[in-house]
Amino acid sequence: MTETHANAGTAPAHVVPVWEVSPIRLWVLARATFVQLVRMKVFYFLLIFVALVLVVAAAGLFWLPTEHLIAIKRWSFGAMYLFTMVYSISATALLLPRDLEDRTLYTILSKPVPRIEYLIGRLCGVLLLNAVALAAMFLAMCLLVAWKMPAVEQQLVQQLLHGAAGEAVSLNEVNQAKAEAARYGLSTSLLWAVWALYLKASVVSAVTLFISTIASSSLFTIVSSAMVVFIGHFHQLILDFWKVNETGWFGGLIGRLLVIVFPNLSLFDVVDEVITGTSLSFGAGLQLTGMGLFYVALFVLVAQLVFVDKEL
């Protein structure tokens, strides 16, 4: 008797056409996620950032202004990197497993909410959190840089005068020194650097979301995501190792697999160049954006493939 109906359960019924995804519901889910994370007091960690910035600012007493400026940027970006990675991994890893455990997923998915909407909504909430946290930290850094700029300019002009050893210095040369100083200051390249960081965090969030659809525990998700981030930073190393050493088909296979499975996060590491004054072209920035979006879309898609038929 049952055989006649046996195929009904296996129909791909959960698959939702794109047009059924409602932006309003996405926003409701993203906002709820953001509020949830904020109420978990995640922003208190930013106080650590403030403390760090103060320490670095005070350290200016022992440094040349140019060195100090680089230190400010390096430390700020380092802290931003750390915070966004921690937020992306731990916040995302907490969401889905907890919803499963608390069975809040039942009430959400028994509303007319497609599963893909739930996933994207959750992810957007984390991305929103990252955006707010990064913007705040970036702003603090910019203030510090702007505060330091006159001293840097003065130092460079003074170095010019010192080098001239009493001879006349042309206005042109002074302007050149000032332009040199400006390279260290606020620039669109800094903006690109923070955007690259944001893209990287978004990719890591998407990876974590995907892992959390397979794993049902937060701890497992956090550990696995951290591992993906770690490996993702050593793409070049893996590639080199694979090429230089004749590792045989097995090693080669593993190297190839690693490079394909793990997103290349080192792509987004433009901070080092930008800090020391190298500018980043618009084209390069656009390319980064494209890569970031590609990775995010890819991992959301795989997450959906796993999640769509998951037994709750």
Partner: peptide
């Protein structure tokens, strides 16, 4: 009934 779990068979 609510689509939270998929039937093995039947509808």
């Amino acid at each position: 009934i609510l689509g939270l779990v998929q039937a093995t068979s039947g509808r």
